[in-house]
Write a protein that binds this DNA or RNA. Structure first.
Lengths: 215, 215
DNA sequence: ACCGAATTGGACTTCTCAGTATAGCAGTGA
DNA sequence: TCACTGCTATACTGAGAAGTCCAATTCGGT
């Protein structure tokens, strides 16, 4: 019974990853769902690894936490594939909205965001790093696209594409983020995503489209 | 020297409040700045009260926390004084924006919000209560006003004043809340508040004003 | 098959913190 | 003067968690 059976029995997929990768994965999950207060024992158990191994790989809880953040930041690298430069701004915007709802508004991502907010009190640089790798990237990429569209005469941001980009993302986010952060999660159906994304694009085009009326 | 001098020496303003009120005040401050993880000893010290008194007044840390939340919720009761019903929607909206920047975007309020977010993982009902006493009230009051304006033909929300209200508040909040939550605080000057509030009102009116163009 | 390195499980130390217990002190009312 | 009540100060208990130590085991490369 000894070697073979016990080895085979425990071969979950996670066992195939290196200890370090498994720890990072488990740590991300545990920190996300329990906040920085999870015990190292709990993380070790979740990673299916002994506590000592955990401390061999990462010297301390703080180190592990920061390594996990860095690991995830590498993944976060923004989407916003500037795929079609040819499309009508309205369609492009609706698409961005859709993408946003699928990625950034998932329960998973909101949980991660909540955890970062909590940690940013204890580790201020974490908050800054997250902001610069996430929201800032996003808004700047969008602003750049808007600036291009403005030169083409298809948008009119009044010379402040950054603020316009902020506004669009704010429209998309709406109260959804607020509710998510406060733990009031409501799954959004694809059709609801579609409706909201289109609505935001319409609203934005009315406000920043090329033919706007004054006062 | 004994009685008079010692009593007089310690008479800070906070000494004039009842022990209970002092504790609530100190607890609010400590929870806000340190999160739920502050020690009861620290709170007792901040309230200038012995630990035992603290436990006499509030049976446990959780009870104290919830009492503090309830105490503050009573204060939060929304502004949005529907003062002038006569004013042009644009001015009304700009005013709401200004008020919002002054109250809800203060470092103080953001810190409180951040703390609630952290606690809502541990105490889910806290998150819900905060949402319903704060953001929800706000958006519903605004939606009600918008609905009235729509009947008067001075706004056109396309029949969804709630979503329009959400949109306006999102515009106002923008990235400011995000940055605040992540600890990247940047004081906003009154003129900056003014500029942003006006800008948001203009944008909103272009999108939801009465004479909108279609597609 | 063998050796060194990594891993394991668990006991152990030290610390912090919620909550309790105790003993004394200060004001109040009769 | 005396009992009563509420507060202070401080020591204490018990639980949980970070981090360490160590003997036994397993794994990877040769």
């Amino acid at each position: 019974m000894s070697r073979h059976s016990s080895a085979a029995m425990q071969l979950t997929p996670s066992q195939l990853l290196s200890a370090r990768a498994r720890i990072l994965e488990a740590a991300a999950e545990m920190f996300r769902t329990h906040g920085y207060d999870v015990s190292m024992d709990a993380i070790a158990a979740a990673a299916n690894v002994s506590k000592q191994t955990l401390y061999n790989q990462f010297g301390s809880k703080e180190d592990l936490f920061k390594a996990m953040i860095a690991d995830r930041a590498a993944v976060m690298r923004a989407p916003l594939n500037a795929s079609a430069l040819e499309r009508h701004p309205r369609d492009m915007l609706a698409d961005i909205g859709r993408q946003y709802y699928q990625h950034a508004c998932s329960e998973h991502e909101i949980g991660y965001y909540r955890m970062i907010i909590g940690a940013s009190q204890q580790f201020p640089d974490i908050g800054r790093a997250y902001y610069e790798a996430g929201p800032k990237q996003m808004v700047e990429a969008l602003a750049q696209w808007m600036s291009r569209e403005e030169r083409l005469g298809r948008l009119d941001t009044g010379g402040d594409p950054l603020l316009a980009a902020e506004h669009f993302l704010s429209l998309v986010t709406g109260q959804i983020e607020t509710r998510g952060l406060l733990g009031l999660w409501a799954e959004m159906s694809p059709s609801e995503m579609e409706r909201r994304a289109r609505f935001c694009a319409d609203v934005f085009m009315r406000a920043f489209g090329p033919h706007r009326l004054m006062a």
